[in-house]
């Protein structure tokens, strides 16, 4: 089975924030929750770089390891999802994540954290596919529809690639070869490297 991965080509990202807005609008993500965000380093200086970051759907994901209720799980295609009915909002996944992916809306009781929300690779969630519940809790299920995630589909410069890891890596390798720069894809060794 194909292994799904994200790749952000930092030589191409122009920090237009299109991915962030596509994600927020398309998945009805509440205010204050960012499933994806763009970080710019050395802004206004030579060597300025921007990276679009979300959940990387890591191999051997640390969030799954630390979750006290086993609410986070990994699908066969590598997509990491959270079950919001099981999540207790303890925040341990946030402490374990190297990418700052887990997000917490404020809940009803004492402003305590609600269930964790994060990038689903636009693959919905554990609720029944295309159900109202899935749409409401997790957003679109574009993977089930045979479409790529909103962020990557929207990306104007195609800096953000999402899909079958082998194809994504091939596209990136060819780009690197042609332009002669940017050997290591940002975050890949941390997300998908052998531990």
């Amino acid at each position: 089975m194909a292994r799904m991965k994200f790749l952000c080509d930092i030589e191409r990202c122009i920090a237009c924030d299109g991915c962030v807005i596509a994600c927020k609008e398309g998945n009805n993500v509440p205010v204050g929750i960012n499933r994806r965000r763009v970080v710019t380093i050395n802004e206004g200086q030579p060597g300025e770089k921007s990276i679009s970051i979300s959940c990387m759907h890591c191999s051997d994901a640390p969030c799954i390891a630390v979750c006290p209720v086993d609410a986070i799980y990994q699908r066969e295609d590598g997509i990491v999802l959270v079950n919001k009915d099981t999540c207790i909002g303890c925040g341990y996944c946030f402490m374990a994540c190297p990418f700052g992916a887990p997000q917490f809306p404020s809940g009803k009781v004492f402003g305590a954290r609600g269930a964790m929300d994060k990038c689903t690779f636009c693959a919905g969630g554990p609720a029944e596919t295309f159900s109202q519940k899935e749409r409401k809790l997790y957003g679109q299920n574009r993977i089930a529809e045979g479409k790529p995630p909103l962020c990557a589909a929207m990306c104007a410069t195609k800096a953000l690639l999402a899909g079958d890891a082998d194809i994504v890596a091939d596209i990136y390798r060819e780009r690197v070869f042609r332009r002669g720069s940017g050997v290591n894809a940002w975050g890949w060794s941390r997300a998908y490297g052998k531990k």
């Binding site: 006290p68 099981t86 999540c87 207790i88 004492f110 305590a112």
Partner: peptide
Amino acid sequence: MVIFARSLGGGGLVLQARH
């Protein structure tokens, strides 16, 4: 209850315990 949350299945009960 939070330590043994896995056995309790998580969700509402453990969330209440956390509050």
